[in-house]
Amino acid sequence: MQCRWPLLGPLRWITYVNKHVKVKAGKDEVLWGWLLTVDPVSASLVLMDFKEDGGASVQVVMGHAVEEVQIQQEADEETTDRLQASFLPPKTCGLDP
């Protein structure tokens, strides 16, 4: 990464969305997951890991602690749909036109 993660800005962060990423955070923490979003205020990453029973675990990595983000894999269509639907209330779509 050329530039520190919190300074990348929305247009760079959004290129990481729907990718499977490896994140180094703090001194010795390494996390993996599908990147759902990056909070543009705190630069925090939201990673999701889907379980076989239909549930998911969500990890939020604080932007200030992020040392490095590496893209490992692109999401297929099913995973993308699952990611996008994760926190939407039923029968409501996003505000995005």
């Binding site: 800005g9 929305p10 979003t37 909070d39 543009p40 939201v46 926190f87 505000l95």
Partner: peptide, 19 residues
Amino acid sequence: KEQHARSVLRERFLRCVLS
């Protein structure tokens, strides 16, 4: 474009925090 990306990212984050 940047503002649009910002709003998409922020909305998803807020929905996550809400949940």
